[in-house]
Amino acid sequence: MKRKIHLLAAVVATLCIAVFFISTIIVELFGSLDMIASTKSLIVTPGLFILIPAMVIVAGSGFSLGKSRKGRLVNVKKKRMPFIALNGLFILTPCAIFLSIWATSGIFDTTFYIVQGIELVAGAVNLVLMGLNMRDGLKMTGSGLPRFAKTV
Rank of each mutant, 00 (worst) to 15 (best):
M1C: 08
K4G: 07
K4Q: 14
I5A: 10
L7F: 13
L7Y: 02
A10H: 05
V11P: 04
C16F: 01
I17R: 01
V19P: 01
F20W: 11
I22F: 11
S23K: 03
S23R: 01
T24C: 05
I25G: 02
I26C: 09
V27G: 07
E28V: 00
L29I: 13
G31N: 13
G31V: 13
S32C: 13
S32H: 10
L33Y: 14
I36H: 09
I36V: 15
A37D: 02
K40I: 05
K40L: 04
L42W: 11
L42K: 10
V44L: 01
V44Q: 03
T45H: 11
G47L: 09
L48N: 04
I50R: 09
L51T: 04
L51E: 07
I52C: 07
A54K: 08
A54Y: 00
M55L: 14
I57R: 03
I57E: 06
I57V: 15
V58E: 08
A59S: 15
G60N: 10
S61Q: 08
S61T: 15
G62R: 03
S64V: 05
L65I: 14
S68Q: 13
K70R: 15
R72P: 06
R72I: 13
V74N: 11
V74C: 05
V74S: 04
K77V: 08
K77G: 07
K79F: 14
R80H: 14
F83I: 14
I84P: 01
I84F: 10
L86C: 09
N87G: 14
L89D: 04
L92M: 15
P94C: 12
P94W: 00
P94K: 07
P94S: 11
C95D: 10
C95A: 15
A96D: 00
A96K: 05
A103C: 13
A103E: 00
T104R: 13
T104A: 08
T104H: 10
T104Y: 02
S105Q: 15
I107Q: 10
I107Y: 07
D109Q: 08
T110W: 04
T111M: 09
T111S: 12
T111I: 11
T111P: 06
F112V: 02
F112I: 00
Y113K: 03
Q116D: 05
E119K: 00
L120I: 01
V121Y: 01
A122V: 04
A122W: 06
A122I: 10
G123K: 05
G123F: 06
G123C: 07
A124Q: 00
V125T: 11
V125E: 03
N126Y: 03
V128C: 12
M130Q: 11
M130W: 02
L132Q: 08
N133F: 09
M134H: 03
R135S: 04
R135L: 15
D136C: 08
D136V: 03
G137Y: 04
L138G: 10
K139E: 12
K139G: 01
M140S: 12
G142S: 11
G144P: 02
L145H: 05
R147A: 15
R147T: 10
K150G: 12
K150V: 02
T151K: 13
V152L: 15
